[in-house]
Design a binder for these strands. Structure first.
Lengths: 110, 110
DNA sequence: TAAACATGAAACTGTTTGGTTGCAAATATA
DNA sequence: TATATTTGCAACCAAACAGTTTCATGTTTA
């Protein structure tokens, strides 16, 4: 049986896919339409559309309809959530004492 | 046909799973054995073992056999890869001019 | 040496994922 | 108004994933 039956749709899931990471990098520079985005990949426009839907659900991108086109832009502040998660490790990798070896510390304690 | 037939096993895939993120956070503090790690979760020891295998393949964790036990510790420097990927966005979210709106810039250009 | 313990691997199961094709709705243009 | 364009959605498919149970291997310890 599957315990995790709820759909996992967070920022970490969003950036797990390489195509989605590329899309994020693309629209970070400037807002783009789905067609324009799809031109940069070898997959179909519909596949890109599905990626955009996931990114929208995660609130990483924002839609702005402009006539029959829809401009997608990046909600940059969402990227900060990853940064915040990294914070706990940043302390460790910048701390020379801990960097010496978490493992040695563990073994010595025993 | 499936284009991505190769197994995707990078740092982004590794941190996509919430259990794996929890494992990473656990052993960041101090090295632990699979049993000790599994005690912190409601899943089976074997499931945790599979997660540890994935983390090992991504070279995020290091194994140090100690008798019949195996201590797993975090390769903190691997976390920096995420940090490096974030770098391109950090510029944007810290730049007030761009923060004003990538979208507006796009629309004005047209 | 025999029993207990720690661990990984193999086989299997159901869900999610990323992709495809086809279609419907809405907007722009001839 | 008829046609082309832009887009999202539904249905379907194969691969990957997260989990389980069972088992084999190696290491302590009684």
């Amino acid at each position: 049986m599957f315990i995790r039956s709820i759909m996992r749709r967070d920022i970490f899931q969003a950036i797990a896919d390489p195509t989605r990471r590329a899309i994020i990098a693309l629209i970070a520079v400037q807002a783009m339409t789905p067609n324009a985005i799809a031109d940069n990949f070898s997959t179909t426009r519909q596949a890109v559309s599905k990626h955009l839907r996931i990114l929208t659900e995660c609130e990483i991108v924002r839609q702005v309809p402009q006539g029959r086109e829809i401009y997608y832009s990046l909600e940059v502040h969402k990227m900060k959530e990853i940064d915040q998660w990294l914070e706990q490790f940043r302390q460790i990798w910048e701390d020379k004492y801990n960097q010496l070896d978490t493992l040695l510390l563990t073994l010595q304690t025993q």
